[in-house]
Simulated scan of single mutants.
Amino acid sequence: MSTAGSARKTTSFNNPPNYSFVHHRLRRTLRDAKKQPIVLVACGSFSPVTYLHLRMFEMAKDFVRQNTDFEIVGGYLSPVSDMYKKPGLLNAHHRVAMCTLAAEQTSSWLMIDSWEAFQNYQRTAVVLDHFDYEINTVLGGVQTEDGEHRNVRVMLLAGSDLISTMSEPGVWSTGDLDHILGQYGTFIIERAGSGMDQATDNLARWKNNIYLIPQLIQNDVSSTKVRLFLKRGLSVRYLLPMAVVDYIEENGLYLDDGPSSEKEKGKEKEQEAGSSKKTVS
């Protein structure tokens, strides 16, 4: 099993102006000394954040408790930078604000990290390194009830569409895949109509660090569909946390954001592929 921080090379990171790492809900003491502490990190646009984004963490928590020797000590949403240039991507200020409202008002353990959002585009591998650095180097990890120090393993939480792109030749660099899946590992939430067998077969070398979580109650709510509803003047209540719905209405968001055309979707996939192949600076 890979241990978080075992291959960590970076000693510091350039932070956005006025940035501080949020850790008020990070549990610093393990409940069970026999388990390995982990933090879940979900990277994405969150434009806007939906109940499915939040539900992913709860599904992962149930899976971890019932099927692994891990203990979750925290969960983070990391909104992508505006420089990602994805269709329908609202500016980072609003996306971080909506995610913060959602986490603070619906959860007792989720947090929002704005490091990725307020600077140039950062690759997923680098984002995970950032969390590893902040939690294990700056904060000093966690400890057992007897005072024994433990490093926290950072793990990526994502939908099955991500694992599909990882299995496609040339989309992700082998170095990044080895860094993400080899050093850290990932929990993949099954999504409706998305097969994962072929994808995981192509990633067999990292299979011990890939945990597949079935979605027992299918939910196909997406940010794209929510934006389309808003553009058409339809209600999105009960698709998003009420605080997020209120924020969108108060700020008049997404009124000019129409549905992505097939051409735009094609460009989006090309952009994602190009972004994932960037080399470490």
Rank of each mutant, 00 (worst) to 15 (best):
A92M: 02
M155G: 01
F131E: 03
L162I: 12
A103F: 05
L156P: 03
L128P: 10
I135T: 02
S167K: 09
L89E: 11
L77E: 00
V127K: 00
G140Q: 09
Y76H: 11
Y121L: 11
L77F: 13
V171C: 10
Y133S: 05
E145A: 15
R123G: 06
V154H: 05
G141T: 10
F131P: 08
T124H: 06
E148T: 13
F118D: 06
V154Y: 01
P87F: 03
G141N: 12
Q122K: 14
S108R: 04
L110Y: 05
A125L: 13
A103D: 07
V80T: 08
R95T: 06
Y76I: 02
G140L: 04
D146Q: 15
L77R: 04
H94F: 14
E116K: 10
S114T: 04
E148R: 15
L139C: 11
T106H: 10
L101V: 08
G141H: 04
L157H: 09
Y84S: 14
D132Q: 14
E104P: 05
L89P: 04
L101N: 01
Y76V: 10
S167A: 15
S114V: 01
A103L: 00
R153K: 14
H94W: 07
V171M: 13
A103Y: 06
T165N: 10
D129R: 12
F118A: 06
L90F: 10
G159S: 10
A125P: 04
A117D: 08
Y84K: 08
L89Y: 00
T124S: 09
N136A: 03
P87G: 02
G141C: 05
L162M: 14
M98I: 01
G141K: 01
D132L: 06
W109N: 03
G147M: 11
I163N: 09
F118R: 00
L101A: 07
M155C: 10
D132Y: 07
E145L: 14
H93T: 13
G170S: 07
M166G: 06
A125I: 10
E116S: 12
T144K: 00
D82Y: 03
L157M: 07
V171G: 05
A102C: 11
E145R: 15
V80R: 03
N91Y: 11
P79F: 03
R153W: 02
